[in-house]
Amino acid sequence: MPEKKVALVNRKASYGSTDGRESLDALLALATFNNSLSVFFIGDGIYQLIKNQLPRLILQKNYQPVFKLLDLYDVKNIYVCEDSLKRRNISENDLIIKVAMLSNKELKQHLAQQDQLLGF
């Protein structure tokens, strides 16, 4: 049986809720068992990837360094909704890791290809 395609879908900003951080924890844990993972950043979820955040100022731990581990854990399918970036006037250069940009149509196609989705 082929390995299941599992995707984590992030729709919330970095802080204000722990969804982003706990999604990333789950992603790394799953990555040690599954090589067919994808991660999506849609809507406010893209704020998680913006450089130079200072969460200590609001008593939160900066989890952004963990994004750098995705490469090491062989998580290659990192997708960002292009429309969400544009609407927020954010450019790809503002993001801390290399991502693949997807149009709304491509996004739907990629999501439809997954066997399992975990939404955060």
Binding site: A29, L30, T32, F33
Partner: peptide, 10 residues
């Protein structure tokens, strides 16, 4: 642990 989530997912 979260590893168990991977197991249940599989």
């Amino acid at each position: 642990g979260l590893g168990q989530l991977a197991e249940l997912s599989a």
